[in-house]
Design a protein around this nucleic acid. Structure first.
Length: 601
RNA sequence: GCGCCCUUAGCUCAGUCGGAUAGAGCAACAGCCUUCUAAGCUGUGGGUCGGUGGUUCGAAUCCACCAGGGCGCGCCA
């Protein structure tokens, strides 16, 4: 039996259909679907094949459906196939065909559901990429979890995945960071300089990043360097004396903090790419030169944005990239008026680097505030792929993560450091724990705003999906532990149960659970193609629901309890189902990066 | 003003490249512990899928326009 009942059945449907409609166009055949039915009265699966074939065949859908139903009815594992509605064919599988999923799951373990639809296509998933100027906060967290789960999901679906973090360590923000840390350093030394006086020295005339979190950096720097970076009398020294070392010290510190936060969240990037390094290696310049050589750059003047007040706007010639040739609304500037690169220009270099390292698809997981950036990056990737990719083309995709509103006691939490309400990722982790954070962040479509209810995330109730799914897994493990104590039940490990006879599994709630398990490979493929890891969380919630329902039916009907004293064969069949359920839950939790719970007491 | 995203039950949200009578949880009401975990389960009620047109065998889904919410709009990242 194939891993994926739906894929197998689909092949059979297409085969039968092509006999009924001999000159079936291949593009029609490609659109044939075999889907789970919404209504159990419609059987296990339905196909739209006859509806699709009707037009090219110039025959009535019902007529083709009838023929298709007849053809399918005789096949092994199909108990019944009947035409229905406007031209569907409803398929009811034999119980044996449903049961066959169990030994497959037990043999494959959490690898069950692995798919080959990715065909090894190399996908680079870039996520988090928080600026190393401050601690990670709740906003970064969603992108981190979504990106990580998406990467896991794509890997499970057979893509060759690279998880990457882009460190923006070259811009003006990093310079601003260095200035603040230097100020904290002088303070730690006990400078007599006033903050106002110091600010007159700062480029731009004002300190940024005023949060207390930089005070420890100043202290550490003071311990490490004593007063060697300060001017006479603990005043500010000339920047060329201290700037590089303070900047490097600060970057290293912040990046270490970020990596620690990510580790606590269970996120592990394979590659950290430094913007400074991209610049130092000349990657950005080279990418821009190639765009220039391709005739895609010019000096021009952009129209002022309409409907937005820009007090200091004036017409200026700039180096522009012809993004409009690739579908963007407007051409985009690559150089600031001081001649340095825009963020976009450097990012072109970075994306060129990702392509040069070998990627067929680039996915950027971005916050909602970067939504306006997508069209220009897509244009740039299309333009540079021609000269960096062996195939000459690379797809660029963006997964946009909307804002997270934190709710506590039914009220929105105001993000305020002064008020002591938490803002950082670390606080969130301490409050609800890693698994709850990850799972909860994945219970919404990425591009929909979400409310993160702190109380719900740790609640031990049905409406908390984290708990509900974990509870189902714990119950599975509990039964298996109990079974292991009765020698008459035999070997109740996964491998021991893989050979169990399953004929006893015939009640409706058991069949419903089998059906759900059989959906898993199909669900993985759909979620991966749609880049929607939240579907995994919803599936697990449904699967847990089927299991809890079966569990409770055992209260009314003793024959549905998993452990049947004196009936080792029936018990082993049920235990195999329990083990398979636990395994698929673990398979899904692994994608989400959530640890399964063995016991809840 | 322009672009992108969103609008589904009282609330929070699913809804499979267009598929059958639009689903789940919460809240409300009625039931289920002599039992492998009642931290759970079962049932009932609840909908002009923001609005109006269009495309077709079929639209919550695709297209156009409109209303409401979010994000963005040269030298920030």
């Amino acid at each position: 039996m194939a891993d994926n009942l739906f894929a197998l059945t689909r092949r059979r449907v297409v085969e039968a259909l092509s006999r009924i409609v001999p000159d079936l166009p291949s593009e029609i055949a490609a659109r044939v679907e075999v889907t789970p039915t919404r209504d159990p009265a419609h059987g296990d699966m339905a196909t739209n094949a006859a509806l699709l074939a009707a037009k090219p065949a110039r025959r009535k859908p019902a007529e083709i459906a009838a023929a298709l139903a007849t053809a399918l009815s005789g096949l092994d594992g199909i108990a019944r196939a009947v035409p229905a509605g406007p031209g569907f064919v409803n398929i009811t599988l034999s119980p044996d065909a449903l049961r066959a999923v169990v030994p497959v799951v037990l043999a494959e373990g959490i690898a069950f559901g692995d798919s080959a639809i990715g065909h090894g296509t190399r996908i680079n998933v870039e996520y988090v990429s928080a600026n190393p100027t401050g601690p990670m906060h709740v906003g970064h967290c969603r992108g981190a979890v979504v990106g990580d789960a998406l990467a896991n999901l794509l890997a499970k679906a057979g893509f060759g995945v690279v998880k990457e973090y882009y460190v923006n360590d070259a811009g003006a923000q990093v310079a601003a960071l260095a200035w603040v840390v230097y100020w904290r350093y002088l303070q730690a030394l006990g400078t007599g300089l006033s903050e106002a006086a110091f600010e007159t020295l700062v480029p731009g005339g004002a300190l940024q990043y005023r949060g207390d979190y930089l005070i420890p950096l100043g202290r550490a720097l003071a311990e490490q360097k004593a007063d060697t970076l300060a001017g006479p009398g603990l005043t500010a020294a000339a920047p060329d004396l201290w700037f590089d070392s303070v900047r490097d010290f600060s970057l290293a510190w912040m990046l270490r903090e970020i990596r620690e936060d990510l580790a606590l969240l269970g996120v592990r990037h394979e590659i950290f790419t430094s913007e400074r390094e991209i610049l130092a290696r000349g990657v950005a310049d080279q990418a821009i030169d190639r765009l220039d050589a391709a005739g895609l750059l010019y000096e021009g003047v952009l129209e002022p944005p309409k409907g937005k007040v820009m007090a200091d706007w004036e017409a200026r010639p700039q180096t522009l990239f012809r993004a409009t040739q690739f579908g963007d609304d407007v051409d985009r500037p690559l150089r600031k008026s001081d001649g340095s690169n825009t963020y976009f220009a450097n990012d072109i270099g970075y994306h060129a680097d990702k392509i040069a390292r070998g990627a067929d698809v680039l996915i950027d997981v971005l916050g909602a505030d970067h939504g306006g950036y997508v069209s220009r990056m897509r244009s740039a990737v299309a333009a540079i792929a021609a000269s960096y990719a062996a195939s000459g083309s690379v797809a660029f995709e963006a997964v946009i993560c909307q804002i997270v509103h934190v709710i506590k006691d039914g009220q929105p939490v105001r993000m305020s450091k002064r008020a002591g309400t938490f803002v950082t990722l670390r606080d969130l982790l301490e409050e609800v724990g890693r698994d709850a954070v990850r799972f909860t962040m994945l219970t919404r479509k990425p591009d929909a705003q979400m409310e993160f209810d702190l109380d719900l995330a740790v609640a031990q109730t049905r409406d908390n999906p984290v708990f509900y799914v974990q509870y189902a897994h714990a119950r599975c493990r509990s039964v298996l532990r109990a079974a292991a104590e009765t020698p008459a039940f035999g070997d109740v490990t996964a491998s021991g149960l893989a050979t169990a006879g399953l004929d006893d599994l015939s009640s409706e709630p058991e069949l419903a659970l089998l059906r759900r398990l059989s959906h898993w490979p199909r669900l993985v493929e759909g979620a991966a193609e749609a880049r929607e890891p939240h579907r995994i969380a919803f599936y697990l919630n449904d699967l847990a629901g089927d299991f809890h329902a079966l569990w409770n039916r055992g209260r009314d009907d003793a024959t549905l309890r998993f452990l049947q004293a004196g009936q080792p064969d029936a018990t082993r069949a049920k235990l195999a189902l329990v083990e398979a359920t636990a395994t698929v839950i673990r398979s899904g939790l692994a994608v989400l990066g959530v640890t399964p719970v063995e016991e809840m007491r």
